[in-house]
Each structure stands twice: as C-alpha cells, then as structure tokens.
C-alpha cells in the first residue's frame, strides 16, 4: 500500500471533505464557513481527477467536471462575498446569528 494510487487520493478527498464539514459545523463566522465550503468543493474536484486518472483513463470527463466546478465555485464565492459585505454594512457583523432577522 506504499505506492500511491486511487485509494490514497480517495482518502485525501474524504479527509478534506470531512475537515470542511467539521469547519462548517463549528464556525459561526460567515467568511470561515465559506472557506470550509471551498474545502468541500475541492475534495470533490480531487475525487473527480483521481477517478479520471486511475479508473477511466480513456476519458476526460473528470477533468471537465473539475474545470466546471472551479468556475461555479468562483461565481459562488463572488456572490457570497458580495452578500457578506452587504450584511456587514447593514448589521455591522458577519456572524450568522446576526442574519437571523431574515427568518421573520
């Protein structure tokens, strides 16, 4: 098992995914929650590339999914940060609890 292969990559992907989940659950700051989400997205990208490399070597679908995910992540981060900064302007804080008045 010393030679790195598919399982190593999948392990890294899974570990990153759950590190991201842990961060998302513990943090209450919107920016750090966004960062945890980026980790989750990246773990998925890594899995796509790993499957493309080790299982379906004759295709490029994993690469394309990764590229599209990265593009969508960029759009998502831009919108999220615009919302966060707007929230900071109106509430003076970026804690998730300060956005609770949207419930009513």
């Amino acid at each position: 098992m010393m030679e790195p292969g598919l399982y190593h990559m999948l392990f890294i992907g899974a570990a990153l995914f759950f590190i991201g989940i842990y961060g998302f659950l513990t943090r209450r700051n919107l920016i750090t929650m966004l960062m945890s989400l980026e980790l989750v997205l990246n773990s998925v990208c890594l899995n796509f590339i790993a499957f493309n490399k080790y299982v379906w070597t004759d295709r490029l679908d994993g690469l394309f999914f990764t590229v599209f995910i990265i593009a969508i992540a960029a759009a998502e981060a831009a919108v999220a940060i615009a919302i966060i900064i707007h929230l900071y302007r109106s509430h003076g804080s970026i804690d998730v609890s300060s956005a609770e008045d949207m419930k009513h």
Binding site: M9, I31, L34, M35, E38, N42, C45, I49, A50, N52, K53, L63, T66, V67, I70, A71, A73, A74, A77, A78, I81
Partner: peptide, 23 residues
C-alpha cells in the same frame, strides 16, 4: 503529480489568484 497540468493551472489561477484574494 497526476499529470493534469491544465487542471492544476486552472486551480491556481482561479483559487489562489481569485477566490483566495477575494476572501
């Protein structure tokens, strides 16, 4: 390392050069 140079370059351009700077 997996010889996906294009994906690596896109990752660095978008994540390191764009999203990280935004954050």
């Amino acid at each position: 390392w997996m010889r996906f140079e294009f994906a690596a370059a896109v990752q660095i351009v978008v994540y390191a050069g764009g999203i990280a700077v935004l954050i």
